[in-house]
Nucleic acid binder design. Sequence first.
RNA 1: GUCCCCAUCGUCUAGCCCGGUUAGGACACCACCCUUUCACGGUGAGAACCGGGGUUCGAAUCCCCGUGGGGACGCCA
Length: 458
Amino acid sequence: MSQVRVRFAPSPTGFFHIGSARTALFNWLYARHTGGTFVLRIEDTDHARNSEEFLNVIYDSLTWLGMTWDEGPKVGGAYGPYRQSERDHVYKEYLQKLNDAGRTYEKDGAIWFKLLGERYEVFDDHRQKTVTKVKAAPTVIEDQIRGHVERVEDEDFVIVRSDGTPVFHFVNVVDDIAMKITHVIRGEDHLSNTSKHVELFKAFGAPVPSFAHIPLILKQNGPGKMSKRDQGALVEEYQRRGFLSEALVNFLCLLGWSPKDDSEKMPIKEIIERFDLPGVNQTNARFDEKKLAHMNMVYVLEQPADRFVALAQAYFDRQKVFAEGTAPTPEYFREVLLLSQPKIKSIEELPAYTSYFFREDFAYDEKARAKALGKGEPKVRLQELQALLATADFSSDAALEEAMKGLATSKGLGFGEYQSVARLAVSGTNVGPGITGIFRVLGRAKTLARIERLLATL
RNA sequence: GUCCCCAUCGUCUAGCCCGGUUAGGACACCACCCUUUCACGGUGAGAACCGGGGUUCGAAUCCCCGUGGGGACGCCA
């Protein structure tokens, strides 16, 4: 059995698109599933704006998503170089093969690939000009996802531009041959190009790789496929916003592929085991950020404490949440985060969710204030709490809870009577972690000071 | 316009290949429960086989035609 070799071949445009990420992912999954090789090849043939910086966007995103490549830039391999801008000698050599076989000709200074068959002229009313066509037999594509596809490739096409640079169709096929690629897994937008590619493979006398054209990702609002300009289309955006890469990967896997039972959240190991080309759908999938958000929440909730804190720390640093010299101690920061973790859905809501832990001059939310102070005897409740907390045991949530419940019971009131005013006093809001947890993390001094601050306004 | 691909709840999908299901799950939405606020969680509801022909005792499932959606028609990749 021959070893599977797949490749992901992005062009460094400065963006790493969610659709590209999924194409990369399906290639990577297939390589890992089959024990094959995942090759990264940079298609930077015709780009004036082809800088290291743009390449780093690709490397960073792939790395962040956990897709390590076995051959390619940085890691090398037996079939390098892996940047097309460095492979001119290979293209010259292959062009010579085509010349020798009599399958090229020059026209308008460019080199064209000559299809086999009788030529005739016809007026193309879409392009509004007369074109030369070829009476060619249909090209057959046996696609692993689409099945048997036939398409007539009936026009010669340019393979080397008049400025001497080779075009995509040519370099793509040449590199696939030279790099011994066995499976071409790419977006369905390339299906129509495939007949050109197959004809080139045949002209080279090279074995035609197995094709698998995966469905496209459609934009969530409006018509058409998702493009770089669309909201939420860039991988780096999710990275910046503190999404968990495992969540994004898991979500992307489910866009166009299904394990065929009801499994959704799966560790990558399991996805690798279960992923296969025949399981890929044929229908385009609409990107749904709500479902991604849900997947992300599921992953956020189950993060081990250390990783959760590290992710949050990185996010706070990137967002410069704390002004110079105002950062809390790591111990305090950690306590606040662990108190919040079970309550939130994403890393990015953490700064707002925890802001009152890091400042004494927080504002009272108007609605929360009206609600908490609007009924009963808030002032009396606060005074009772003040007295209780002056001597209460702050060492655990349970101890504080017991004390507060005791107070409530002794006054014949519900826990909520104290909870709502206390929450307003210590946080200025009516949402947040359990009140006793807030007390404990804040500590006695801050808690009492905050109650005093609210009391002073009544 | 030509060619290619596709078609199950609003969305992602299972079921289709090998016809017989109360057409299943998840997200979202709604209701209720849990509760110490807010989340989480639990329970429940509503929600789909694009249309028309055919084949068949029987069609989401097989075939054809429409329609709809997507893609490709560059000296871009």
